[in-house]
């Protein structure tokens, strides 16, 4: 994936480039808003990492002009502005994600991977958590390379959990994923699917966080 990095702080940009290249991304770096806008006029990038406090044009203005030109390129804002209003504003103008400095590089990489999967440019369609893997291209669940037979809804539930491995998915969040799929969901449907999945999956793979939701561990 080709990334346009718009960041005026040179040491930060150098460090970021090194991390991103190490992960196999191709990075172009520009240091101001004007260059960023002209670079975006050529459809040469897959994603933009955008700093807001640029020396010439504010990052939000760059984003606005990009969206005004109907460019749907994913944009991740990376900024020191951490107030709730700033976040909401950035996302409203059309950012796909918003990260506040100082950020965890692993979090930035995770979010890049989410966008990559969405764009379908990921090299691998596999989501792996310990012994369990999901092949999102083939819609298959694999346990130690053996295919597991599961219903489509069970697959959706597990995918929702594994995509967000290490985080908790509430019953409502999982339900909304099932709704997306376009079917009526019974009130205890999620519990039923989880119950069925647990019978097929290794013990303690899906954990219940009482009162909050369900989670699977990353490793």
């Amino acid at each position: 994936m080709r990334i346009l990095l718009v960041e005026d702080d040179i040491p930060l940009a150098l460090g970021l480039q090194q991390s991103l290249r190490h992960e196999g991304f191709v990075v172009n770096h520009v240091t101001n808003g004007k260059t960023a806008i002209s670079a975006l006029s050529v459809p040469d990038q897959d994603l933009v990492i955008l700093d807001l406090g640029l020396p010439d044009i504010d990052g939000l203005e760059v984003l606005k002009r990009t969206r005004d030109r109907k460019l749907g390129i994913p944009v991740i804002i990376l900024t020191a502005r951490d107030s709730l209003e700033d976040k909401v504003k950035g996302l409203d103008i059309g950012a796909d994600d918003y990260l506040v400095k100082p950020f965890e590089i692993s979090e930035l990489l995770a979010r890049l991977r989410v966008i990559e999967r969405r764009l379908g440019t990921a090299k691998s369609a596999l989501i792996i958590c310990s012994d369990v893997a999901i092949d999102t291209a083939a819609h298959k669940i694999l346990i130690k390379d053996e295919q597991l037979i599961a219903s489509k809804k069970e697959y959706m539930v597990l995918k929702a959990l594994m995509e967000n491995a290490g985080r908790i998915q509430s019953r409502q969040q999982i339900e909304s994923r099932l709704y997306e799929w376009g079917e009526e969901v019974a009130s205890n449907a999620v519990e039923v699917h989880i119950h069925n999945l647990r019978k097929k999956l290794p013990e303690q793979f899906i954990k219940t966080v009482r009162g909050v939701g369900y989670t699977v561990n990353k490793t």
Binding site: L12, G15, K101
Partner: peptide, 21 residues
């Protein structure tokens, strides 16, 4: 505190890069 955010990011990234490579 605000001014420290960017240099902190630089530190974090470089520590990460060191650890990775």
């Amino acid at each position: 505190a605000h001014e420290l955010r960017t240099p902190l990011s630089v530190l974090k990234i470089n520590v990460h890069n060191l650890q990775m490579t």
